[in-house]
Write a protein that binds this DNA or RNA. Structure first.
Lengths: 146, 146
DNA sequence: CCTTGACTTAAAGCTAACTTTAAGTATTAG
DNA sequence: CTAATACTTAAAGTTAGCTTTAAGTCAAGG
């Protein structure tokens, strides 16, 4: 299947203007043209899926371009591309861990406001109760160690 | 305990310049001054911990300021603050889910490059093998449904 | 007393990742 | 044939979140 830029935009969920920008930035190698107009194939859409993955997990466009450039070199760049993917994979795992940590902080705040709303006031909410009730340490407990 | 801005910066892991910027943006209400110089207390550091949580989970500074403003209103704003926290909590859970989805895409790529390096070439790697070997769908499998 | 270093401010500058604008070309429907 | 629509380009503009700069104040140590 072939697609115009607006069809591709619809499919991958990226505005056409942004796709042109990515193309200009060298993120979309070898997009075909017909009368100067871009023609997208399924393989291009699949690559854009990977670009979205890398971009949304925090890889800068510069680095994505490096990855795309390596891809053009074929099998000679397999190891280098593998290293990039492995690094990004570790990076994403770290992000998930970090978000889970922040989620605990928000869990505490959720508990806190629940308690405060029940009491009608946030004065005299005991941080110790959080541990007693949930078995978890209050993340911003003034008495927390470390 | 009291701290200078550079001690506070060290403690919370935010540059002093950025702390001044946050203060200017209204994210740090009622920081004490002594001869015009900011004096940080433990309670301020704890608030900065929450700010870091909100900021790093994607809340814009504008919105953080709204939250901080509400805090100043005391118990009258408990419900509103609770809504903000609940929304951010859901937002973080969505982010984690999204990252786990992207991680699967990277898991596939990891498998792919492993296989390609073993074979010496990425020509003729079967996407079907990924499902056979791991029981998972290849995220950018050209034959994938949906 | 004088220098050093930490602090102060307002304002300008920076970077990434778009987004918009302006001007033009090509295809299609009536 | 004409008008609408979809596309093209280069370049300027936007936004968030800092970061740097310039000019100055203040307290402590030698």
């Amino acid at each position: 299947m072939s697609y115009t830029i607006s069809e591709a935009a619809e499919k991958v969920g990226i505005p056409a203007t942004t796709i042109r920008y990515y193309d200009k930035e060298g993120l979309l190698p070898n997009i075909k043209r017909k009368n100067g107009i871009r023609v997208f194939e399924d393989i291009d859409l699949r690559l854009m899926g990977l670009l979205t993955c890398l971009k949304d997990t925090g890889m800068p466009i510069k680095r994505i371009r490096e990855y795309v450039e390596l891809t053009k070199k074929g099998d000679a760049s397999l190891q280098e591309r593998y290293e990039i993917i492995k690094a990004q994979r570790r990076f994403v795992m770290d992000q998930i861990r970090q978000l889970q940590f922040y989620l605990e902080e928000l869990d505490f705040k959720d508990w806190y406001y629940n308690k405060a709303l029940a009491a009608g006031t946030e004065k005299a909410i005991s941080f110790d109760d959080y541990e007693k009730e949930t078995g978890r340490k209050a993340p911003d407990d003034p008495n927390r160690k470390g």
